[in-house]
Amino acid sequence: MIAMGTEGVCGESFYPSDEEIKKWMDKAFDMAKDALENGEVPVGCLLIYNNEIIGKGRNEVNETKNASRHAEMVALDELRDWCELRGLEVKRVCEKTVLYVTVEPCIMCAAALRLFNLPVVVYGCRNDRFGGCGSVLDISSANLPQTGTMFKCVAGHRAEEAVEMLKIFYKQENPNGNPNKNDLLNYVTFLLL
């Protein structure tokens, strides 16, 4: 395993290795499975800096009554707290932080990741309803000079499993329902992601 040291890694060449992607995506999938077993939306989301988890999130829309509290937004707040506690500058830390998430971030979260200047996002399955990394809009690479910096995406890691978990979750929530694909994504991504 190659450790992601702060030394010798400049912004442009900053990229996680295959082993790192596997390790942290496995962890994100464990989180998603845990959530599924607890009746929560099965999405795992981790922010990794220097081989350490500095932020993780689950969807908090229902308890906060704030529809912008997606897992990524919650994780970014944890990252801020982590930096504050250690007296580190958020911008410096973000330059070398990777987001690992089991589902493609939505348009809003993609804009948030730009505003935090995150360089790389690794995700599992596409988000056909709200995806901001190419599925609906490509915010990750759009020309938006006032909206932070572009980020690179690594897509498709264990994608079928991520979709499968969302399907199981939907069936549990709506045992009498007759889910079609649109209903599923609509329900999951609007209410809970």
Partner: peptide, 11 residues
């Protein structure tokens, strides 16, 4: 901006 506009869609 994009962040706010999409948050308004979700809201």
């Amino acid at each position: 901006c994009v962040l706010c506009a999409m948050a308004l869609v979700h809201s």
